[in-house]
Protein backbone atom coordinates (compact mmCIF):
# COMPACT_ATOMS: atom_id res chain seq x y z
CA UNK A 1 0.00 0.00 0.00
CA UNK A 2 1.27 3.44 -0.92
CA UNK A 3 -0.46 6.66 0.05
CA UNK A 4 0.85 10.03 -1.19
CA UNK A 5 -0.72 13.20 0.13
CA UNK A 6 -0.05 16.61 -1.46
CA UNK A 7 3.51 15.58 -2.23
CA UNK A 8 5.86 18.14 -3.74
CA UNK A 9 9.57 18.26 -4.46
CA UNK A 10 12.12 20.92 -5.34
CA UNK A 11 15.87 20.56 -5.04
CA UNK A 12 16.24 23.92 -3.26
CA UNK A 13 13.71 26.40 -1.92
CA UNK A 14 14.81 28.92 -4.57
CA UNK A 15 14.20 26.50 -7.44
CA UNK A 16 10.81 25.83 -9.06
CA UNK A 17 8.82 22.75 -8.04
CA UNK A 18 9.49 19.58 -10.00
CA UNK A 19 6.06 18.37 -8.97
CA UNK A 20 3.65 19.66 -6.35
CA UNK A 21 0.37 18.82 -4.68
CA UNK A 22 0.43 15.26 -6.02
CA UNK A 23 -1.87 12.82 -4.26
CA UNK A 24 -2.58 9.21 -5.02
CA UNK A 25 -3.13 5.94 -3.31
CA UNK A 26 -2.18 2.52 -4.53
CA UNK A 27 -3.56 -0.69 -3.05
CA UNK A 28 -1.74 -4.00 -2.82
CA UNK A 29 -1.69 -5.77 -6.16
CA UNK A 30 -1.85 -2.53 -8.15
CA UNK A 31 0.70 -1.14 -10.57
CA UNK A 32 1.49 2.52 -11.11
CA UNK A 33 3.64 3.98 -13.88
CA UNK A 34 5.36 7.36 -13.76
CA UNK A 35 5.55 9.09 -17.15
CA UNK A 36 7.19 12.35 -18.11
CA UNK A 37 9.98 13.94 -20.08
CA UNK A 38 13.61 13.81 -18.94
CA UNK A 39 14.29 15.82 -15.82
CA UNK A 40 10.64 16.18 -14.81
CA UNK A 41 11.06 14.18 -11.63
CA UNK A 42 10.21 10.55 -12.40
CA UNK A 43 13.24 9.11 -10.63
CA UNK A 44 12.96 11.74 -7.89
CA UNK A 45 9.37 10.72 -7.15
CA UNK A 46 10.40 7.07 -7.16
CA UNK A 47 13.17 7.81 -4.66
CA UNK A 48 10.73 9.75 -2.49
CA UNK A 49 8.47 6.70 -2.39
CA UNK A 50 11.51 4.52 -1.61
CA UNK A 51 12.41 6.81 1.29
CA UNK A 52 15.78 7.62 -0.28
CA UNK A 53 14.77 11.28 -0.69
CA UNK A 54 12.53 13.34 1.58
CA UNK A 55 9.70 15.18 -0.23
CA UNK A 56 9.81 18.98 0.16
CA UNK A 57 6.07 19.03 0.87
CA UNK A 58 3.38 16.57 1.80
CA UNK A 59 3.98 13.02 2.90
CA UNK A 60 4.19 9.52 1.50
CA UNK A 61 3.17 6.58 3.62
CA UNK A 62 4.00 3.03 2.67
CA UNK A 63 3.08 -0.24 4.32
CA UNK A 64 5.39 -3.16 3.69
CA UNK A 65 8.98 -3.84 2.76
CA UNK A 66 10.23 -1.86 -0.24
CA UNK A 67 12.44 -3.36 -2.91
CA UNK A 68 14.18 -0.70 -5.00
CA UNK A 69 15.52 -1.63 -8.42
CA UNK A 70 17.89 1.06 -9.74
CA UNK A 71 18.23 1.85 -13.41
CA UNK A 72 21.91 1.02 -13.55
CA UNK A 73 23.78 -1.65 -11.68
CA UNK A 74 27.53 -1.66 -12.12
CA UNK A 75 29.20 -2.93 -8.96
CA UNK A 76 32.92 -2.20 -8.63
CA UNK A 77 33.61 -5.81 -7.68
CA UNK A 78 32.47 -8.66 -9.89
CA UNK A 79 30.20 -10.43 -7.42
CA UNK A 80 28.46 -13.62 -8.48
CA UNK A 81 24.74 -13.45 -9.24
CA UNK A 82 23.97 -15.45 -6.09
CA UNK A 83 26.10 -13.08 -3.95
CA UNK A 84 24.12 -10.12 -5.31
CA UNK A 85 20.76 -11.72 -4.65
CA UNK A 86 21.82 -12.79 -1.14
CA UNK A 87 22.55 -9.10 -0.47
CA UNK A 88 18.80 -8.57 -0.79
CA UNK A 89 18.57 -10.38 2.55
CA UNK A 90 20.43 -7.56 4.36
CA UNK A 91 17.33 -6.59 6.35
CA UNK A 92 17.08 -10.10 7.75
CA UNK A 93 20.76 -10.43 8.72
CA UNK A 94 22.16 -8.83 11.89
CA UNK A 95 25.01 -6.30 11.89
CA UNK A 96 27.60 -8.83 13.03
CA UNK A 97 26.08 -11.84 11.29
CA UNK A 98 26.48 -13.49 7.93
CA UNK A 99 23.60 -14.81 5.83
CA UNK A 100 22.40 -18.22 6.99
CA UNK A 101 21.40 -21.26 4.97
CA UNK A 102 17.84 -19.94 5.13
CA UNK A 103 18.92 -16.69 3.45
CA UNK A 104 20.73 -18.62 0.77
CA UNK A 105 17.65 -20.75 0.13
CA UNK A 106 15.50 -17.61 -0.15
CA UNK A 107 17.95 -16.15 -2.66
CA UNK A 108 18.02 -19.34 -4.71
CA UNK A 109 14.23 -19.50 -4.67
CA UNK A 110 14.06 -15.91 -5.96
CA UNK A 111 16.49 -16.76 -8.76
CA UNK A 112 14.50 -19.86 -9.69
CA UNK A 113 11.30 -17.88 -9.75
CA UNK A 114 12.75 -15.66 -12.46
CA UNK A 115 14.30 -18.57 -14.30
CA UNK A 116 17.84 -17.43 -13.44
CA UNK A 117 18.93 -20.53 -11.50
CA UNK A 118 21.53 -21.44 -14.10
CA UNK A 119 23.23 -18.03 -13.77
CA UNK A 120 23.79 -18.27 -9.99
CA UNK A 121 27.57 -18.63 -10.17
CA UNK A 122 28.12 -16.22 -13.07
CA UNK A 123 29.73 -12.85 -12.39
CA UNK A 124 27.15 -10.05 -12.66
CA UNK A 125 29.57 -7.94 -14.67
CA UNK A 126 29.40 -10.51 -17.48
CA UNK A 127 25.59 -10.43 -17.73
CA UNK A 128 23.60 -8.65 -20.41
CA UNK A 129 21.47 -5.64 -19.48
CA UNK A 130 18.28 -7.71 -19.50
CA UNK A 131 19.76 -10.39 -17.25
CA UNK A 132 21.01 -7.73 -14.84
CA UNK A 133 17.53 -6.22 -14.55
CA UNK A 134 16.09 -9.64 -13.77
CA UNK A 135 18.84 -10.27 -11.19
CA UNK A 136 17.95 -6.99 -9.46
CA UNK A 137 14.28 -7.95 -9.44
CA UNK A 138 15.29 -11.31 -7.95
CA UNK A 139 17.24 -9.43 -5.28
CA UNK A 140 14.14 -7.39 -4.44
CA UNK A 141 12.09 -10.61 -4.22
CA UNK A 142 14.70 -12.20 -1.95
CA UNK A 143 14.27 -9.24 0.40
CA UNK A 144 10.63 -10.31 0.73
CA UNK A 145 9.55 -6.97 -0.68
CA UNK A 146 5.84 -6.17 -0.78
CA UNK A 147 6.41 -3.04 -2.85
CA UNK A 148 8.61 -3.08 -5.93
CA UNK A 149 9.97 0.27 -7.18
CA UNK A 150 11.67 0.10 -10.56
CA UNK A 151 13.52 2.88 -12.35
CA UNK A 152 13.11 2.37 -16.09
CA UNK A 153 13.40 -1.40 -15.84
CA UNK A 154 12.98 -1.83 -19.60
CA UNK A 155 15.23 0.95 -20.85
CA UNK A 156 18.20 -0.15 -22.90
CA UNK A 157 16.72 -3.61 -23.36
CA UNK A 158 15.83 -5.21 -26.68
CA UNK A 159 12.17 -6.04 -27.39
CA UNK A 160 12.52 -9.64 -26.25
CA UNK A 161 14.00 -8.68 -22.88
CA UNK A 162 11.50 -5.85 -22.42
CA UNK A 163 8.73 -8.41 -22.82
CA UNK A 164 10.49 -10.72 -20.35
CA UNK A 165 10.70 -8.00 -17.69
CA UNK A 166 7.11 -6.85 -18.22
CA UNK A 167 5.62 -10.33 -18.10
CA UNK A 168 7.69 -11.13 -15.00
CA UNK A 169 6.32 -8.04 -13.26
CA UNK A 170 2.78 -8.85 -14.24
CA UNK A 171 3.15 -12.43 -13.05
CA UNK A 172 4.60 -11.31 -9.70
CA UNK A 173 1.74 -8.90 -9.15
CA UNK A 174 -0.75 -11.67 -9.86
CA UNK A 175 1.03 -14.36 -7.81
CA UNK A 176 2.29 -12.39 -4.84
CA UNK A 177 0.01 -9.40 -4.74
CA UNK A 178 3.00 -7.07 -5.06
CA UNK A 179 2.50 -3.35 -5.40
CA UNK A 180 4.60 -2.04 -8.29
CA UNK A 181 5.69 1.47 -9.21
CA UNK A 182 7.86 1.96 -12.27
CA UNK A 183 9.09 4.79 -14.43
CA UNK A 184 9.12 4.38 -18.18
CA UNK A 185 9.32 6.25 -21.46
CA UNK A 186 7.10 3.69 -23.14
CA UNK A 187 3.35 4.42 -22.70
CA UNK A 188 2.56 1.06 -24.28
CA UNK A 189 4.16 -0.62 -21.26
CA UNK A 190 1.81 1.39 -19.08
CA UNK A 191 -1.21 0.24 -21.09
CA UNK A 192 -0.08 -3.36 -20.86
CA UNK A 193 0.70 -3.72 -17.14
CA UNK A 194 -0.41 -0.66 -15.17
CA UNK A 195 -3.62 0.17 -13.34
CA UNK A 196 -2.82 3.81 -12.74
CA UNK A 197 -0.45 6.43 -14.11
CA UNK A 198 1.18 9.65 -12.95
CA UNK A 199 1.97 12.25 -15.60
CA UNK A 200 4.76 14.61 -14.56
CA UNK A 201 4.43 17.74 -16.69
CA UNK A 202 7.15 19.68 -14.88
CA UNK A 203 7.05 23.06 -13.12
CA UNK A 204 4.90 21.66 -10.37
CA UNK A 205 2.18 20.23 -12.58
CA UNK A 206 1.40 16.56 -12.05
CA UNK A 207 -1.74 14.49 -12.42
CA UNK A 208 -2.70 10.98 -11.48
CA UNK A 209 -5.52 8.70 -12.58
CA UNK A 210 -6.50 5.36 -14.10
CA UNK A 211 -4.15 4.43 -16.88
CA UNK A 212 -6.92 4.49 -19.52
CA UNK A 213 -7.69 8.12 -18.69
CA UNK A 214 -4.05 9.22 -18.48
CA UNK A 215 -2.58 7.45 -21.49
CA UNK A 216 -4.64 9.09 -24.20
CA UNK A 217 -3.38 10.75 -27.37
CA UNK A 218 -4.32 14.20 -26.11
CA UNK A 219 -2.74 13.90 -22.64
CA UNK A 220 0.46 12.23 -23.84
CA UNK A 221 0.88 14.68 -26.73
CA UNK A 222 0.74 17.47 -24.20
CA UNK A 223 3.08 15.60 -21.83
CA UNK A 224 5.82 15.00 -24.40
CA UNK A 225 5.30 18.19 -26.39
CA UNK A 226 4.88 16.26 -29.64
CA UNK A 227 2.08 14.38 -31.41
CA UNK A 228 1.45 10.89 -29.99
CA UNK A 229 -0.81 8.43 -31.80
CA UNK A 230 -2.69 5.42 -30.48
CA UNK A 231 -2.81 2.41 -32.79
CA UNK A 232 -5.21 -0.44 -32.15
CA UNK A 233 -4.73 -3.82 -33.69
CA UNK A 234 -5.80 -7.41 -33.31
CA UNK A 235 -2.90 -9.22 -31.64
CA UNK A 236 -2.56 -12.96 -31.10
CA UNK A 237 -3.69 -12.35 -27.50
CA UNK A 238 -6.69 -10.26 -28.44
CA UNK A 239 -7.38 -6.57 -28.99
CA UNK A 240 -4.24 -4.50 -28.22
CA UNK A 241 -3.15 -0.89 -28.25
CA UNK A 242 0.15 0.73 -29.04
CA UNK A 243 1.00 4.35 -28.36
CA UNK A 244 3.71 5.75 -30.58
CA UNK A 245 5.40 9.06 -31.04
CA UNK A 246 4.57 10.42 -34.46
CA UNK A 247 8.10 11.37 -35.40
CA UNK A 248 7.00 11.91 -38.99
CA UNK A 249 4.92 14.95 -38.07
CA UNK A 250 7.87 16.60 -36.34
CA UNK A 251 10.86 15.50 -38.37
CA UNK A 252 9.33 16.12 -41.79
CA UNK A 253 7.79 19.44 -40.79
CA UNK A 254 11.09 20.72 -39.35
CA UNK A 255 13.27 19.56 -42.20
CA UNK A 256 10.88 20.81 -44.90
Amino acid sequence: MIEARAVGFRHEPALPWLFADLSFSLAAGQTLVLLGRNGRGKTTLLKCIAGLLAPSAGEIRTAGVIGYVPQHFAPVFSYSVLDVVVMGRARHVGLFASPSAKDRIAAEAALDQLGLGSLAQRSVTTLSGGERQLVLIARALASEADILLLDEPASALDFHNQAAVLSTLRRLVAERGLTVVMTTHEPTHALEIADRAVLLHGEGVAEEGPVAEMCTEAKLSELYGMPMRQLSYASGAGEASHIVASYAEIVRARSA
Binding site: L52, Y68, M87, A90, V93, S143
Partner: peptide
Protein backbone atom coordinates in the same frame (compact mmCIF):
# COMPACT_ATOMS: atom_id res chain seq x y z
CA UNK B 1 32.00 -10.20 11.86
CA UNK B 2 30.50 -7.42 9.74
CA UNK B 3 32.01 -8.60 6.47
CA UNK B 4 28.60 -9.20 4.86
CA UNK B 5 27.79 -5.56 5.58
CA UNK B 6 30.94 -4.55 3.72
CA UNK B 7 29.61 -6.33 0.63
CA UNK B 8 26.52 -4.17 0.85
CA UNK B 9 28.45 -0.93 1.49
CA UNK B 10 30.47 -1.70 -1.63
CA UNK B 11 27.32 -1.24 -3.74
CA UNK B 12 27.23 2.48 -2.94
CA UNK B 13 25.34 4.54 -0.37
CA UNK B 14 22.02 4.78 -2.12
CA UNK B 15 21.73 1.11 -2.91
CA UNK B 16 22.90 0.11 0.54
CA UNK B 17 20.24 2.37 2.02
CA UNK B 18 17.61 0.90 -0.31
CA UNK B 19 18.60 -2.56 0.93
CA UNK B 20 17.80 -1.44 4.46
CA UNK B 21 21.31 -0.65 5.70
Amino acid sequence: LMRFRINILSLGDEEARALGL
